[in-house]
C-alpha cells in the first residue's frame, strides 16, 4: 500500500521534455510537463496551472485552502507523530518535513466556508513525506469525518499522497480501515463527502478514503492508482500505455466522476452542494420557520 511515486525521482528517460532552457532566476519557473518557462507571478495568479498545457502544479495545503475556501479555521487537535516501531531516523524525517512545510503533518483539517456552505475540510500536502499516511494522518482524517458528522455539514478531502507511511508499518495500513470505518458512519448519516484527487493520489490513500467519496473529482493529468507505475512495469515487464493512470484515463475507465480544473473547482463544488442540500445555513432556517 505504498506506491513508488513518493520515493523515486522521475527516471531520465521518462522526462517529457528534452529541451534545455535556462531558468534565469527566482522570478521564473519551468513547467514540469511541457517545459515552457512561466512567469511565477502570472502562474500564481493562474492558480499554479500552466497556461500552455493545463498542467496543475503541486501546491501546498494552505495554498489550496486559500484558493478554495472563503473562510477557514484549522481544527486544533492535540496529537503528534510518535515513533511506534522505533524506526530509525523516522522522527528526524518528520522534523525536517515540519520545518520545510510549516506543518505538523501531511494533512490540515478544519472547518470552512465555500459560498453559502459550511464544510469540514481536510487538505493533504504532498511535500510532507510524500503525503504519506501514518497514525496522525489517519486520526486527523477521522476527526474531519467526525466533525462533518456531528455538525451535519459536507466533508471535502483534497488528496495528495503516495500511500501508507512505511515507517509506521502495519499501523499505517490500519489507517485505511480506520478512515473507511469512519466513512461508513458518515454514509449512514447521509452526509455528503466529496473527494478531490490531486497529483499524485495512489496506494493506501487511493485504496481507502480517497476513493470513497459520494462524488470523486480529479484534477487534470493527476496520477491516480493503486500500484505505482514502476511496480506495475516491473511486474508485467512491458511498456505502460500512453496516459496510463492519469486522471483522464481513470475517467475513461469509469473510476472517477469528473476531471475539473482547479480554477473551476469551487463553482463545481457549490453546484454539487446545491444538489445535496446539506450544510447551507439558509436552508436550515427555512426548515425551522
Amino acid at each position: 500500500m505504498i506506491s513508488d511515486t513518493m520515493w523515486f525521482k522521475k527516471e531520465k528517460g521518462i522526462e517529457v521534455t528534452t529541451i534545455k532552457r535556462e531558468v534565469p532566476n527566482g522570478l521564473w519557473v519551468k513547467c514540469e510537463e511541457c517545459g515552457e518557462i512561466l512567469y511565477k507571478k502570472e502562474l500564481a495568479k493562474n492558480l499554479w496551472i500552466c497556461e500552455f498545457c493545463n498542467y496543475h502544479f503541486k501546491i501546498s495545503a494552505r495554498k489550496y485552502i486559500e484558493i478554495l475556501t472563503d473562510e477557514f479555521k484549522e481544527l486544533d487537535i492535540d496529537i503528534q507523530t510518535a515513533n511506534p516501531l522505533q524506526f530509525e531516523g523516522y522522527l528526524d524525517k518528520i522534523k525536517t518535513a515540519s520545518e520545510k512545510t510549516g506543518q505538523k503533518e501531511a494533512i490540515l483539517i478544519g472547518e470552512g466556508k465555500i459560498g453559502d456552505y459550511k464544510i469540514a475540510l481536510g487538505v493533504m500536502d504532498f511535500r510532507f513525506v510524500g503525503g504519506s499516511m501514518g497514525s496522525v494522518v489517519g486520526e486527523l482524517v477521522t476527526k474531519a469525518i467526525e466533525f462533518a458528522l456531528s455538525n451535519k455539514i459536507p466533508l471535502i478531502i483534497i488528496n495528495a499522497s503516495g500511500g501508507a507511511r512505511m515507517q509506521e508499518g502495519i499501523l499505517s495500513l490500519m489507517q485505511m480501515a480506520k478512515t473507511s470505518a469512519a466513512l461508513s458512519e458518515l454514509a449512514d448519516a447521509h452526509i455528503p463527502y466529496i473527494s478531490i484527487l490531486t497529483n499524485p493520489t495512489t496506494a493506501g490513500v487511493m485504496a481507502s478514503y480517497a476513493s470513497l467519496g459520494d462524488v470523486v473529482i480529479a484534477e487534470p493529468k493527476a496520477l491516480l492508482g493503486f500500484a505505482g507505475p514502476r511496480v506495475i512495469q516491473q511486474t508485467i515487464k512491458q511498456e505502460l500505455p500512453e496516459g496510463f493512470q492519469k486522471a483522464e484515463f481513470c475517467l475513461e475507465h469509469g473510476l472517477i466522476d469528473a476531471v475539473v480544473s482547479r480554477d473551476k473547482l469551487k463553482k463545481t463544488l457549490i453546484g454539487i452542494f446545491d444538489f445535496f442540500g446539506v450544510g447551507k445555513e439558509e436552508i436550515k432556517q427555512e426548515i425551522n420557520n
Binding site: 485504496a207 480517497a210 476513493s211 506495475i232 496510463f244
Partner: peptide
Amino acid sequence: IGAEERGQAQAIAYNLR
C-alpha cells in the same frame, strides 16, 4: 494494467467501508 483499469484501489476501498 487490467487491475488498474478495473479499479483495484476502488474495489479494496469499497470492501473496507
